[in-house]
């Protein structure tokens, strides 16, 4: 997880929680009853986790209980978000359902007419939020990637291409990321878009490994605004920077200390220690293992002591 390490520095500089967060969960046409139950369950799981978070973001779900959203319902919901979300707010769209790809264009299956990826992109452009996350969990969702990528937007697709057409399980594990604290790999009490993506991708891979099934979905992420999505965002492909600083779910109060002027020096010290730790991690390969370990342990101990003072 080099990318996460590299971004700790960035995270320290970036306010973790913008003014407001707005979530739109759209459940498409399920086709079969079995899928209806599953889609509804995943949407509900995400909704519940967001409702339980201290941040209490604005959440709207369409189509979960009605056998799938219609095009009009989807457009109305996006237009509402466009009216209310400001430029500093974050906007998250999660698509749950089935998708198709005809070799040229992707369609998200709705009750009635489906929506093409290009249509969806136009609608999303109406939203002022400069930081957007689009999570498309359907089959063939990789086919929508070219239309949806845009600067400052994180796009996650359950499949690498439009030709991966089998029903996906990615949504199930993406929903789990909202309620499984282990998704917070850096233990900073915030699950970022990158952490949720990595969690869901890993669990999806485990599913196929354990079931001994041929892998029919390989999720990808793009947050550089152009090109294709990548399976493993990281320093080697330049992807993942924005996603790593995109807070999806806050698990605790990390900002309380920042409000106390008496703790300012300690916070500054903590920040410096974290930067030193990050730098040391980058030097790991070039240092003798014992030196690295000695230096790292010293920094980690000092950081723990500093944190204890902050928490007093």
């Amino acid at each position: 997880m080099k990318i996460i390490m590299a971004l700790a520095f960035l995270l320290a500089m970036t306010p973790l929680v913008p003014a407001r967060s707005a979530y739109l969960i759209v459940v498409g046409h399920p086709g079969e009853d079995d899928y209806k139950v599953r889609f509804q369950g995943w949407a509900q799981q995400i909704e519940n986790a967001l409702a339980d978070s201290p941040e209490k973001p604005q959440v709207k779900t369409v189509g979960a209980t009605t056998g799938g959203a219609t095009l009009a319902e989807l457009e109305t919901a996006i237009n509402e978000a466009a009216k209310t979300a400001g430029a500093d707010d974050i906007f998250v769209l999660i698509l749950i359902g089935h998708g198709t790809f005809d070799g040229t264009d992707y369609k998200f299956n709705l009750k009635g007419p489906d929506i093409r990826s290009a249509q969806l992109a136009v609608m999303l452009d109406r939203i002022q939020s400069t930081r957007q996350l689009v999570v498309n969990t359907t089959a063939a969702s990789g086919g929508a990637m070219p239309a949806l990528v845009k600067p400052h937007r994180v796009v996650i697709a359950a499949t690498r291409t439009g030709t991966q057409k089998n029903a996906t399980v990615f949504a199930r594990y993406f929903a789990d990321a909202f309620s499984d604290a282990s998704a917070d790999t850096d233990k900073n009490e915030t699950i970022t878009a990158l952490e949720a993506y990595v969690y869901a991708a890993r669990r999806t891979k485990e599913y196929y490994d354990q079931e001994k099934r041929i892998v029919t979905e390989q999720s990808v992420l793009n947050d550089i605004g152009s090109g294709v999505g990548v399976r493993d965002p990281g320093a080697n492909n330049g992807q993942g920077l924005l996603a790593a600083s995109f807070p999806m779910l806050r698990l605790g109060s990390t900002a309380a200390a920042a409000a106390n002027p008496e703790k300012a020096a300690l916070l500054k010290r903590k920040e410096l220690l974290e930067q030193q730790i990050d730098r040391l991690k980058y030097q790991k390969e070039s240092l003798p293992p014992l030196d690295y370990r000695r230096q790292m342990n010293a920094l980690l101990l000092t950081l723990a002591q500093t944190q204890a003072q902050i928490d007093q």
Binding site: K187, L300, Q307, A308
Partner: peptide, 15 residues
């Protein structure tokens, strides 16, 4: 802590 330097529970155990 090397994986998650800000992991408060681990910091507590370390101290």
């Amino acid at each position: 802590l090397e994986v998650a330097p800000g992991y408060k529970e681990a910091q507590k155990v370390l101290l």
